[in-house]
């Protein structure tokens, strides 16, 4: 292989990766358009787009449905999918572990516990909307801090963080089970529903909170992409190549926790995306985080929005919880990619 082919090989690969990300993004826009026209209230495609472009009266039912229900739900699906995918990719990167996700480190089970606490012991679910959100968020941060604190005693390595995370996960799972045991059946139902995850509670307020989080953290994640790449060669090699390993790990953990907390406090636990979106992307785009991170964001958004769109229509008018649909949709796709790839992708 001559000098020019190494260079042109890299250029070609970069070009292909950008094209793939662009293609996925175009697919996402297409899916958004399709999703906006799905629903029990029969509204034609043209009417939907007229409404979005402001061509219809603001107080008609169609306008209310499109602006108050469909768009927030769709945007939340996109942002939540992107955020959870990013959080998962970051966790897998900083921990060099293919099984790492916000769930492995107890973050999601802490959120479930916070929500359960609000539902079962708090003001109940009727008055407790903001209490549930606040509590879920608070406990997520507590779990992240606990993982950090425990891991720090033995040094911040992937192993210590995963061990601490698993301990925290089991602790919060047990606490949640205990609360369910105490709670009456109506509250327990609400907890179970919360743990399935749903985009149905999305409003413009929750969408904008998640948008701000993603908007603020995505650039920071991208900036760390180079360090994450180098980190995959091991802590020592990364240090020797100039990567401030511990700072990246702590910062990445904090960023991923914030993203996860910011999403699941509004949607409930949507677990699968954080684990699988990075893997799917890695199989398509390779391990370079400069492409992996944006790619994961788009793939996460695609999977979540796709799952929710199917969940809304397949048994309409009944809506299936998006957390369940995500697994139904994502697992077969994941297995297909996993079996059809010759190369070690991890």
């Amino acid at each position: 292989m001559s000098e020019t082919t190494i260079r042109s090989g890299y250029a070609k690969r970069t070009h292909t990766r950008i094209l793939i990300i662009g293609g996925l993004f175009a697919l996402l826009i297409l899916l958004t358009g399709v999703a906006a026209t799905l629903g029990s209230y029969s509204i034609s495609v043209i009417e939907v787009f007229e409404t979005i472009l402001g061509g219809r009266g603001a107080d008609s039912d169609i306008s209310t449905i499109v602006w108050n229900y469909r768009l927030p739900r769709i945007l939340m699906g996109i942002l939540a999918g992107a955020a959870l995918g990013l959080a998962g990719a970051m966790m897998q990167g900083i921990l060099r572990n293919p099984l790492a996700s916000p769930f492995t480190l107890g973050i999601a089970s802490a959120a479930s516990f916070g929500a359960s606490l609000a539902i079962i012991l708090g003001a109940g679910f009727a008055a407790g909307g903001s209490l549930i959100i606040g509590n879920a968020f608070l406990f997520t941060l507590i779990a992240a801090a606990a993982v950090y604190g425990l891991a720090q005693i033995r040094g911040i390595t992937p192993e210590t963080m995963i061990m601490a995370g698993i301990a925290i996960m089991y602790l919060f799972s047990a606490l949640t089970s205990f609360l369910q045991y105490l709670g009456d059946s109506e509250d327990v139902n609400a907890v179970v529903f919360w743990m399935f995850g749903s985009l149905g509670r999305s409003t413009w307020e929750t969408v904008s909170v998640v948008a701000i989080l993603v908007g603020a953290l995505f650039p920071l994640f991208l900036l760390s992409a180079r360090s994450l790449n180098t980190l995959s060669a091991g802590d020592e090699a990364a240090k020797s190549l100039g990567v401030p390993v511990e700072q990246i790990r702590i910062g990445g953990m904090a960023g991923a926790s914030l993203l996860t907390a910011g999403v699941i406090c509004f949607t409930g636990t949507i677990g699968f995306i954080g684990l699988v979106a990075p893997h799917i992307t890695r199989m398509i785009l390779g391990g370079d985080h400069r492409f992996l991170l944006p790619g994961t964001a788009v793939v996460g958004a695609l999977v979540l929005l796709g799952a929710d769109s199917i969940g809304r229509t397949i048994m309409a008018p009944q809506i299936l919880p998006v957390g369940i649909m995500t697994a139904f949709l994502g697992v077969p796709f994941f297995i297909f990619l996993f079996l059809s790839r010759r190369r070690n992708y991890w």
Binding site: G9, G234, R282, D288
Partner: peptide
């Protein structure tokens, strides 16, 4: 090294 080509390394 996860998902890296020689070039990447």
């Amino acid at each position: 090294i996860a998902a890296a080509t020689v070039f990447d390394v």
